[in-house]
Amino acid sequence: MNKRVTVNKLVEMKQNGDKITMLTAYDYITSGLLDELGIDIILVGDSLGMVVLGYETTLPVTMEEMLHHTRAVARAAKRSMVVGDMPFMSYQISPEEALYNAGRFLKEADAQAIKLEGGEEICPMVSKMVEVGIPVMGHLGVTPQSVHQMGGYGVQGREEEAAKKMISDAKALEKTGAFSIVLEKIPSALAKKITKTIGIPTIGIGAGPHCDGQVLVTQDLLGMFEKFVPKFVKQYAKLSDDIRSAISSYIKEVKSGEFPGEEHSF
């Protein structure tokens, strides 16, 4: 059996120029497939609120919902690192509450790390977690939990001051002990500069080709989420069409009596 991907392994991959692959999963079956195929990191993202639970944003997602789905993913993942995404208001109130909730991902859901959004302002929370041995992945750029403050999901870091702050935030997260940082929807040149500036891996989503790794929402990659398709998404399949075709055939065959046939009967 392949060894579990660890924090040290990811840093080694950055140093060796070996690109890191990350995808989302919210259930046992998808997690098992990603793990079997060699995905390095499986993120149980709070994006499950929109992709699985039908919320308009990620803001309503609760700790209990995140733990429920993380448990399912962790049961199937034997090699991939499982990262649990901390939902809105699970870490912003105080370092102590952030530590407690982060610990639940490892203790109750068998995740190997957690992810949280923000820069220097969340470093006290990150510090508490790292002190007790909880691996932390940061997240800069478009941070969906701050959608109302940002005024939408537009590209971040275009202006010089915003870019400087993002570089400063990345350095602060690294200094505080984060092992990796997701860079979402920022200019490619800025992502390249951050990636070269810090010693921990960067994982890009809409951040160009120069990050140490890439992440997508699996349902976007497979063409299953149809409300909108972000510019940074490449659809490697159109499973929604295949699902429609299969279910339509099932309905037709049940109605006509063609299914079940002799080969499906006892």
Rank of each mutant, 00 (worst) to 15 (best):
G17Q: 11
I20R: 06
L23G: 11
T24P: 11
T24G: 02
Y26D: 01
D27Y: 06
I29V: 09
I29K: 11
S31W: 03
G38M: 11
I41C: 11
G45S: 12
D46K: 10
L48N: 11
G49M: 04
V51S: 06
V51P: 08
T57D: 00
T58W: 02
T58Y: 00
V61Y: 01
M63S: 05
E65G: 01
H68R: 12
H69E: 00
V73C: 08
A76P: 06
S80H: 09
S80R: 04
V82L: 09
V83Y: 01
V83E: 02
D85T: 10
M89H: 12
M89Y: 13
I93R: 10
I93V: 09
S94W: 01
P95W: 05
E96F: 01
E96V: 04
Y100E: 11
N101G: 08
G103L: 12
R104Q: 13
R104A: 12
F105V: 05
E108T: 13
E108P: 15
D110Q: 14
A113H: 08
K115C: 12
G118W: 03
G119Q: 06
G119C: 04
C123Y: 13
C123E: 14
V132A: 10
G133D: 09
G133N: 08
I134P: 00
V136Y: 07
V136Q: 07
L140C: 13
G141E: 02
G141Q: 09
P144W: 01
Q145T: 14
Q145M: 12
V147E: 02
H148V: 14
M150V: 12
G151W: 01
G152F: 02
G152H: 03
Y153P: 05
G154K: 15
G154R: 15
